[in-house]
Design a protein around this nucleic acid. Structure first.
Lengths: 340, 340
DNA sequence: CTGAAAGCGCTTACAG
DNA sequence: CTGAAAGCGCTTACAG
């Protein structure tokens, strides 16, 4: 208790700095904002006064005058539970926060779990942030359009399912799935199933499409499909189901490493040898892929780079950059390990 | 592109609402803030105008006038990497965000990873938030005091290592460790070691103290100690080290479930049977505890409740509540499963 | 290069 | 119960 009431600050204002430096508020403001056209003499006096008073600009006042907040939201359309369990989000977070920090802006992470959705929208639309990177959109979520309408710049990480002009950055999910499935065929597998991800997200849809397309090219029947959420448990259950329906399977493409881990767990419990009896490919190349036994052949997606690119796209847009591409697709790459 | 420049909003202001409702700005403000003393007639007219214009108050203007932001920061003194890998943070996050939301405030999550420390402090001190819940403080971190000095209300989740008047909420780590060690002795273990956590955090220190005290009570030598960071890998390495130095060990108290999981992994690789040859107790009762084989005897700490209590403490303080306790200790509880 | 002044959109005594 | 007015702390044409 330093004698301040809650919420009270004894912070210096521009006014005081100006008085101490013996200049006008205008001049102090120019120095603070690195505006040109200030004499070295004035600049020095102001700098000294700023240091002496430990002056920090009041963001509310600045925001009110400029209509800018210099903060960017990372909006995750999941609840904390899932966010904190999935290495994918850790990578995205790293990428976005590094880029935002490098641009000298602040990043705030907000999650929208159903009930708070209303509050979240209000918060963003009210003008707390200049822009938002929105990740993990499900289905026909109207959030991006709503934010855009409210004047908040938006860039999506992951292709949206709605037809929209909101820009997005995504990994080449289809190409990755295609490569994974071709690899299985190339290594002699004849009966290839898939554990597909949720079909309310582009990542789930596109990876299934890639598998389907490869199966078509190969002239194989694409009938061994089971859907699952992106969790280990769902992966194990899906593997069980797949095996029951198609006992002749000799390979599985799982649409996420988490799913592959679940599949491996089930296969071990059933005594199915990997890769001898059945080959498994994952998707993500998360840390999980190298800690499983056997290590996991998987499709690497550049998670951190996805975060960086999306944040960069957003910042460029805020900077008024013209002729930006409406969307960007980052390459994926097959990483062969011991499970195939 | 709806015709708005980046950052531009076509949002209605109080002024416009007032004009449409045929009242003064004062009256609109009173309705928006649920102030008493507004006629039903005026209130209705204003409500209608608000709906028609989709009016949302400008937070910067409101903040400037009131000196309140209605937002609370959850500050995690770790980098994203670790935050997203540890179930502890997921629970804390749930607790804090639920409590903050219930109080009709917004929560922002900010992480401080070394380099950005400066920016973080500026951000918080500049007045973006009314208060901060700070978790996972290491060593003699001056952050809490700095924030307090800057007029930001602070409540710590976890006892700080510095002598400070900043309030905190913690779990009874010492009591939990005591109970765990006594339990091992009560089930006939004679040679009990410990994998201690980092000694720059109260959680690490207090759990080691609890083990030591129990060993003293039992008249056992407290010499089988190895320190480790709160990760699975460190736990495995520590178990190896412990076993090499003390081959006669028949029990281990690990200061975190993550450490216990690592220990179990190493023991299995060495062919040591749990609990037959060696008993293991963890700490946390995270989801991990029930998924290991054997399931883990552990000390439950009320993670989500820690988050709720700390946030509640902070909000109470902001509300000007008097005579609040400087610190709160929540009980821990031994949960016996198959590893002992 | 510098300063006086208007303005950003609210809240809140104060007077009625 | 209601409104006119001052004030929160900045920025930014504008005039000099």
């Amino acid at each position: 208790m330093s004698g301040l009431e809650p919420g009270e600050r004894d912070a210096a204002t521009l006014e005081e700095v100006a008085r101490i430096a013996g200049v006008s508020r205008s001049t102090v403001s120019r120095v603070v904002n690195n505006s040109p056209g200030v004499s070295a003499r004035a600049r020095a006096a102001v700098s000294e006064a700023i240091a002496a008073t430990r002056y920090v600009p009041n963001p509310a006042a600045r925001n009110l005058a400029t209509r800018r907040t210099d903060t960017i939201a990372l909006v995750v359309s999941e609840d904390g539970e899932r966010v904190f369990g999935d290495p994918f989000f850790a990578g995205v977070l790293r990428g976005v926060s590094a880029t935002v920090a490098a641009a000298d802006r602040q990043m705030v992470l907000v999650m929208s779990h159903g009930a708070d959705r209303e509050r979240l929208e209000q918060y963003l639309a009210a003008g707390h942030v200049d822009g938002a990177v929105v990740v993990s959109l499900h289905g026909m979520d109207p959030l991006p359009q709503r934010l855009t309408d409210a004047g908040v710049a938006v860039a999506l990480l992951g292709r949206p399912l709605t037809a929209t002009t909101v820009p997005y950055v995504d990994a080449d999910n289809l190409g990755g799935a295609l490569a994974a499935t071709r690899h299985l065929a190339a290594t002699g597998r004849r009966r290839i199933g898939t554990i597909a991800g949720p079909q309310d997200m582009a990542a789930g849809i596109d990876r299934l499409l890639g598998w389907r397309r490869a199966m078509g090219e190969l002239g194989h029947r694409a009938d061994a499909v089971v859907h699952a959420d992106f969790t280990v448990e769902a992966g194990a259950a899906a593997m069980a189901e797949l095996l029951a329906a198609h006992p002749d399977l000799d390979a599985v493409f799982a649409a996420a490493d988490l799913l592959a881990v679940g599949a491996l767990r089930h296969l071990r419990s059933r005594g199915v040898r990997v890769p001898d009896d059945l080959a498994v490919v994952g998707f993500d190349d998360s840390v999980l892929a190298t800690t499983t036994n056997p290590t996991l052949t998987t499709v690497r997606q550049p998670v951190e780079e996805l975060g960086r690119s999306t944040a960069w796209r957003l910042l460029a847009q805020l900077a008024g950059e013209r002729h930006l591409p409406p969307s960007v697709l980052l390459p994926t790459e097959l990483v062969v390990r011991d499970s195939t």
